[in-house]
Simulated assay, not measured.
Amino acid sequence: MEQQINELFNWLDETSSIIEQEENTPYIEALIASSNLLFEQQVPEDLEPTYHKQLTDKVNQIQFNQYDRESRRKAMQLAILKGMKGATQQHHYITPDTIGVFVGYLINKFLEGEQSYRLFDPACGSSNLLLTILNQQEHLTVDSYGSEVDPTLIRLAFNNTNLQERKIEYFHQDSLKPILLEPVDVVTSDLPVGYYPDDETASSYELKAEEGHSFAHHLFIEQSVKYTKEGGYLFFVVPSFLFESEQKEQLQAFLKDQVHIVGVLELPKTMFKDEKFSRSILVLQKKGENTKDPKKVMLAQLPSFKDVHATNNVIKQIDHWFKNDR
């Protein structure tokens, strides 16, 4: 697989560099064009002859369907990471694969026995988290939805999905405004952290700040609960300080009223350059007629995923929780 990833990444990188140079455009914009070229396998006719030949030669070198889905996703991820190096916006960030794989594992555990479900990511970015999860769930029918406000990221998500030959319905909008979506069985998201600048939209939320800007990550939690069916599950990647901020009482009261807190799994400290950026996976279940609090909340400090023995021990603890404490 590694060879496939390298081959495909090199193709995307070289083709993006040609487009970047010829069109004097940022690498990330060139990557949108090169990934579309890879999918369409067709060069636009109206290009200058030398440039047209360069791109035609590149297209003739490769067929994306020679590569498995995970190789395509990872090659695209590497190219996006290269394009985002030095990008100043904090939201230009990709959820690491290890987190996506672990969230996918948890979804499989909680939905055991289900044949199909509906999945939504309200802050999907370039869709790496959604696609990582879907690639683990080939045995299920999953209707998938993603929403993203950033125009560059939504175009990358769209191309990423085409290259995966997946069907995901996307909403290019501010996800904290109303979304034309029926409630889903599962919401997952790597929550954007920070202040939300639109006070007027925030004013309709229970978790709005008493004064000043509201926390975007709090509003995303509230919006996600709204778009989840009763009894449905939510899997969030959240800052580890979530329950220590100045609006924690407000958040805790909202969660107590609307959901069951099912699990808090602290991600390995080694994944983060600075401890203050450390994150956790928060698992919630929306309250419904037949739901109840778990006997015990699933709590764990996840080890480095490179430590196979320690990771297996945590998996055993989680299996024990499902059998005895759910």
Rank of each mutant, 00 (worst) to 15 (best):
W11A: 09
Y27C: 06
K273R: 15
K295N: 07
I318T: 05
Q136N: 13
P44I: 13
P178N: 10
D274T: 15
E20C: 10
P192W: 13
L156Q: 03
F171A: 07
F277A: 13
L106S: 10
Y117N: 01
G232V: 11
A87G: 05
E266P: 02
N290K: 15
E206Y: 15
G86S: 12
L191A: 11
E206N: 12
E70A: 10
E22K: 10
S144I: 00
I28N: 06
E23P: 00
D121N: 07
V59L: 06
S17N: 09
E48S: 13
R279M: 13
F9L: 09
F158K: 06
V238H: 02
L55W: 04
L131E: 08
H91S: 14
V297Y: 00
V103D: 02
D293H: 01
Y93K: 09
T56W: 05
K85H: 08
N313R: 08
S127G: 13
N312S: 13
R166F: 10
P122H: 09
Q136C: 04
L156I: 08
K226M: 11
L180N: 14
D190F: 07
I19A: 11
E138A: 08
Q173T: 15
M84K: 07
M271D: 12
V142F: 01
I80S: 04
I28R: 04
D46Y: 13
Y227A: 01
E200W: 09
F241G: 12
H213I: 02
E169P: 00
Y105N: 04
